[in-house]
Amino acid sequence: MKLNIQNETSRLRAVVLGTAKSVGPVPSIEEAYDPKSVEHIKAGTYPKEADMVKEMEAVAKVFEKYNVKVYRPKVIEDYNQIFSRDIAFVIEDKFIKANILPDREGEYQAIQHVIEQIDKDKVIVLPEECHVEGGDVMPWNDYIFIGTYTGADYPDYITARTNIEAVKAIQELFPQKTVKAFELRKSNTNAKENALHLDCCFQPIGKDKAILHKNGFLVESEYEWLVNFFGKDKVFEITKEEMYNMNSNVFSISEDVIISERNFTRLNTWLRDNGFTVEEVPYAEIAKQEGLLRCSTLPLIRD
Rank of each mutant, 00 (worst) to 15 (best):
V70L: 06
A160K: 09
I76W: 03
D121E: 15
P27G: 05
K240G: 11
N245K: 15
T148I: 13
V167H: 01
T45W: 01
S37F: 05
D156K: 15
G106S: 12
K48P: 09
K207R: 13
A284F: 05
Q289G: 14
L212Y: 03
G135T: 10
V23E: 10
R185K: 14
P73R: 00
V75S: 04
I41Y: 03
V26Y: 00
Q81K: 03
I115C: 10
L226S: 04
C130V: 10
E172D: 13
K180I: 15
L184P: 02
K36A: 08
N99R: 08
V235C: 12
V53A: 08
G147Q: 11
F89D: 04
V70H: 04
Q117F: 10
K177Q: 02
W270R: 05
R85K: 08
E64V: 06
S252A: 14
S296R: 06
K186T: 02
P127A: 14
I91A: 02
Q176S: 15
T162G: 08
L271Q: 00
L267Y: 00
E172F: 09
T19F: 03
P127V: 11
N247D: 12
I124T: 08
P155R: 11
E57F: 10
E290C: 15
V53C: 07
S248P: 13
K177F: 03
Y244L: 07
E64W: 07
Y143I: 13
K232W: 10
E77K: 15
E165W: 12
A43E: 13
K69V: 12
N163A: 09
C295N: 06
Y149V: 11
E261C: 07
D273P: 00
T277F: 09
F95H: 04
T189L: 13
K168R: 15
Q6T: 13
L17Q: 05
E8Y: 00
L173Y: 06
T189S: 14
E129S: 14
T159G: 10
D93K: 09
N268K: 02
L293P: 00
V219H: 09
N249D: 01
K94Y: 08
R302D: 01
K54P: 07
Q109M: 13
D303R: 07
N190H: 12
I29M: 10
K69P: 07
R85N: 08
N163I: 06
Y283L: 13
V257I: 12
D153E: 14
A60E: 13
E220D: 15
E255T: 09
I253P: 01
V250M: 00
Y143H: 14
I301M: 09
D153G: 14
D153H: 12
